[in-house]
Amino acid sequence: MIWVIARREFGAMFLSPLAWVILAVIQTILGYMFLTNLDNFFVLQPQLIQLENSPGVTDLVITPLMQVAAIILLMVMPLLTMRSIAEEKRNRSLSLLMSSPLSMTEIVLGKFLGMMLFVIVLVSMLMLMPLSLYLGTSPDSGKLLSIYIGMLLLLGSFTAIGLYLSSLTENQTIAAISTFGVLLMLWIIDWVSASLSNGHTVLSYLSILQHHQSMLEGVFDTSDIAYYLLLIFGFLVLTIRQLDRERLL
């Protein structure tokens, strides 16, 4: 049942031009950045060879590329998640799901999974760029895997937050803006920590991109994984509760 909803959700994204445009724009911009980074790497390469323990192509090309990708997607993901529940509320089609023999959990998981399918497509297309490096050199496969999983977890938590905020309103624009606000807040929350002595660790633990950074560098830490999984789980539970609560209002 979850799968039925997820497939419909995934298919519906491609019925509007939005998903295609997002994929095209992101791929173009990041493709250009990838080539720029690669060019810079060729310039630096002669000096790097003389260094001991010099950073490789993964560190100098792929990691910075994915940092930029994370920030661009922070702005783009709200546009993808905004319609998930808000649109159904506006069109009054939510009652189809509500009167079907489904639990609220199945509905929410179906929606989440549908958007995650899109995220997988998106990240896999981005990963084609690092994979193309295999043609000429040998990038660090372990690091690439860590980057891939890191991107999925990061975008998964963006999606869960967007889904929850979409369930709060009938208005897609409000859902998008508030999702963007929350994501931005979670990103910049640790900027203040430089001037704070205590509370430093808490704030930097909360920062959503801090955890991403270590995964991009190939550090696969369980506390980072736990952070993302908790975030996803938490917001999915909030969404389920929100939809349940609406029946009582």
Binding site: A12, L15, N91, R92, S93, S95, L96, S99
Partner: peptide, 9 residues
């Protein structure tokens, strides 16, 4: 329901 719960797309 009062408004048919259809997907326009």
């Amino acid at each position: 329901p009062e408004h048919p719960p259809v997907y326009r797309d």
